[in-house]
Amino acid sequence: MDDTAPTSDTLRNLRHRRGDYGVDGDFAVVSARGQAVIVAAILFVLVAVAVGAAVAGSYAGAVVAAVLAVAWALFVGSYLYTTLIGKFRVWAGVLAGLGLRGDERVLDLGCGRGALLLMVAALLPRGRAVGIDVWRADQTGNGPEATRRNAELEGVADRVELETGDITRLPFADASFDVVVSNLVLHNISDAGARRAALDKAVRVLRPGGRVLIGDLMHTGEYRDRLRELGLTDARRRGLGPRMW
Rank of each mutant, 00 (worst) to 15 (best):
24 D>I: 00
27 F>Y: 09
31 S>W: 03
32 A>T: 00
34 G>M: 09
35 Q>V: 03
36 A>N: 09
39 V>E: 03
41 A>K: 03
41 A>E: 00
42 I>L: 14
42 I>H: 05
45 V>A: 15
45 V>L: 14
47 V>C: 13
48 A>Y: 04
48 A>F: 09
50 A>T: 07
50 A>V: 10
51 V>S: 08
53 A>Y: 11
53 A>K: 15
53 A>D: 12
54 A>C: 11
54 A>Q: 09
59 Y>Q: 06
60 A>K: 14
60 A>V: 15
61 G>V: 10
63 V>F: 12
67 V>W: 06
68 L>I: 11
69 A>V: 14
70 V>H: 03
72 W>D: 13
72 W>M: 13
72 W>E: 09
76 V>S: 01
76 V>C: 09
77 G>D: 04
77 G>Q: 01
78 S>L: 14
78 S>C: 11
78 S>Q: 12
79 Y>D: 02
81 Y>H: 07
82 T>H: 03
82 T>W: 05
83 T>K: 02
83 T>N: 01
84 L>N: 07
85 I>L: 10
85 I>H: 10
90 V>H: 13
90 V>R: 14
90 V>P: 05
91 W>M: 13
91 W>P: 00
92 A>W: 12
92 A>K: 04
95 L>A: 10
95 L>G: 03
96 A>R: 07
96 A>G: 15
97 G>E: 15
98 L>R: 14
98 L>D: 07
99 G>K: 12
99 G>Y: 12
99 G>A: 10
